[in-house]
Nucleic acid binder design. Structure first.
Lengths: 71, 71
DNA sequence: GAATAAAGTGCAATAAACTACACATTGTAC
DNA sequence: GTACAATGTGTAGTTTATTGCACTTTATTC
């Protein structure tokens, strides 16, 4: 899944920036470690709720925006 | 769910802008009518995949961005 | 390089999303 | 106000996400 793996990369890099482990993030967010690992690897199709819970402690949010026509 | 209902409102208003029905959007996106209704009503916790399939024909995309500290 | 921490992987059980279907309600055009 | 279109709602079956657990592999620290 393209966009999912993209989001996975973003959360992983942001998490590392904040110097916290997957395990830390799991405890903070309340999302299972197994799921966090899957998402960061891009091998998941998470629900919005799960994603928001992970993004929140990372200071990130999910928004919809207009797709720019290819230029 | 706050963000889910927000996304629901956005898709609904965008869909109306484009003058297409929920049924049209269902056929175009391949997502069931029942699910589209639930999302627009904010009574759903869709997966990213489902959401992307709905947003795509509406010319919208899902992105993560930094949360702005409250001012 | 041994010991520990962190990250990755397979699998089975459970919870929840997705779907189709049937029907109700509301909106719109005539 | 009838007819039709569009939207809303309940439910049951199916699919899939989520989770815990056990274990492996890779980093890190000493």
């Amino acid at each position: 899944m393209q966009s999912t793996s993209h989001i996975g990369k973003q959360t992983k890099s942001r998490r590392k920036q904040l110097k916290i482990t997957q395990s830390d993030l799991s405890e903070i967010s309340g999302v299972s470690l197994r799921t966090i690992k899957a998402i960061e690897k891009g091998e998941a199709n998470p629900t919005i709720d799960i994603l928001n819970r992970i993004l929140e402690p990372l200071g990130l949010i999910l928004v919809t925006t207009e797709r720019v026509k290819h230029e």
